[in-house]
């Protein structure tokens, strides 16, 4: 995914009756987008407990515009919160496909990044990036809520630098999709 920096920054000018902001349209759209980063209310294992804590009043992710949505169709970012089993893998993929483009994925914790503690298990997917494209990897078992907010802010930074209009018109390549071609989902 490209991380081109837009050539111009936003310019805030004071006017006689308030002010105005001048800048590339991409930059303005990205400013709006990154401050309404809605994450999907979805957890596969114990990292989900930290995810709940992140949405709670102490960490208060709401103040950055991050609120949970209980449906993939309204979510911008999917948090792979916890161990993913093979039985769950096709469900994770189904939820990912139900999300509107452009979507972002955070692999939260060791399990979602590499399989973690369960590397030797016959039942566990050895990393969320084997089934969906992952943007941010968060180490930790589990990562603390502060770390998760940092991960979400990394997604914000990524959004901020994107040439959004080009992307929205499909003029940029899609992220590399690891899902095996022809593999069917349980529905």
């Amino acid at each position: 995914m490209t991380t081109d920096k837009p050539e111009r920054e936003l310019v805030v000018e004071a006017g006689p009756e308030g002010g105005l902001v001048v800048g590339p349209i991409d930059r303005l759209l990205n400013l709006a987008r990154k401050h309404s980063l809605w994450y999907m209310l979805f957890g596969t294992a114990c990292c989900a407990i930290e995810l709940m804590q992140t949405g709670g009043p102490r960490t208060d992710a709401d103040r950055f515009g991050m609120v949970f949505r209980s449906t993939p169709r309204q979510a911008d970012v999917m948090l792979l919160a916890g161990t993913i089993t093979y039985k769950m893998a096709s469900r994770v993929r189904l939820l990912y496909e139900q999300m509107a483009e452009y979507r972002y994925v955070i692999a939260m914790g060791s399990c979602a990044s590499t399989g973690g503690l369960f590397q030797g298990s016959y039942a566990v997917v050895k990393g969320g990036d084997l089934i969906v494209p992952v943007d941010v990897y968060l180490p930790g078992c589990p990562p603390r809520p502060e770390a998760l907010v940092e991960g979400l802010m990394l997604v914000q930074q990524k959004m901020e630098r994107e040439p959004w209009l080009k992307k929205a018109h499909g003029k940029l390549p899609q992220p590399v999709d690891p899902w095996p071609e022809g593999a069917e989902l349980h529905r």
Binding site: Y86, A89, G115, Q119, G120, K126, L130, P180, A183
Partner: peptide, 17 residues
């Protein structure tokens, strides 16, 4: 593989099975 998903992490020194 399971449904084309590799069961070992590519390029990762997993514990011996």
């Amino acid at each position: 593989h399971y449904r084309g998903i590799p069961t070992r992490r590519p390029g990762y020194a997993a514990p011996d099975r």
